[in-house]
Amino acid sequence: MDKKEQFYQRLEQRGVSRRDFMRYCTFLTATMGLSASFVPKVAEVFAAPKQRPPVIWLNFGECTGCTEAMLRTVYPYADELVLEILSVEYHETIMAAAGHQAEEQLQAALKKHSGKFICVAEGAIPTKYNGGYGRIGGRTFLEIAQEVIPQAAATICIGTCASFGGIQAAKPNPGGYMGVGQALKMKTINIPGCPPNPVNLVGTIVNYLLLGKLPAVDDMGRPLFAYGKTIHDQCPRRSHFENEEFVEEFGSKEAALGYCLYKMGCRGPETYNNCPVAKFNDGTSWPVEAGHPCIGCSEPDFWDKMTPFYKEF
């Protein structure tokens, strides 16, 4: 049985039909901003990858929420990403080896795949005090980033911390934390969000595997397919905004009716992301649907620029 048939058989064992799977590929293709003719090719990337491209995932100053977000992916499930689609050469949260064996594994992967691997960076890099606020195996995050990232074929920053510095870079930024691109003075692909939707990382990687290049980005390195429009412009509560139907207190009748959260401090109008369309956790929901204003978590410096959160902008 070829790889593709094995893949479909596995899906069916899990109660997922080919039709469900193709529907997901259509969704992902549309999310990526590609025409419908790409749908079979997207399916191909999941079902029968020609080779498993090496990935080195680095964790810096962060909370591991982006890794956790990635583990929530479905179609492909995380086990398929790890066993059949990618070759995750280094990822501290999931790898079996530790200590010296982990460090050796990183060095071996760099030697073998230099210039060919995708680097996914999670977390910000402290730059004050010689980078001394963050170390792995005795080396600072900065030293590790400087060694690994220039050797990558492409570097994708997952989450607002790696993209722009994130929470630890909020004032007064005790460790001198910076986004990876800023710390290394280079351009990176940025998938911000706190955490980001895994669909947007999968879309970026699939784009790379499919077309051999990274997707088009805005001037902050964010893929346009995901970050091209504001939350506000895609919000299902938009008509309430137009009709001036606002929530003015949590727990109110207006809140129960799902009115617009603008006056409660919603940052949807300033925030570029596809949350209302892609939604989180297999399309289950997103913060505004749960009655809470958007806090603008995919924008640079949102911890300073968007706060206080509960105040009308």
């Binding site: 977000a69 992916t73 809140a255 956790n281 929901s285 997103w286 913060p287 749960a290 009655g291 809470h292």
Partner: peptide, 29 residues
Amino acid sequence: ARTARLHAIFGGKNPHPQSLVVGGVTCQA
């Protein structure tokens, strides 16, 4: 990945659900 949806149902997403506020929760709808 499915269990995490429990947070998404009444919290909008997981990780980092977003429906708690001082005074209660926002997810009455």
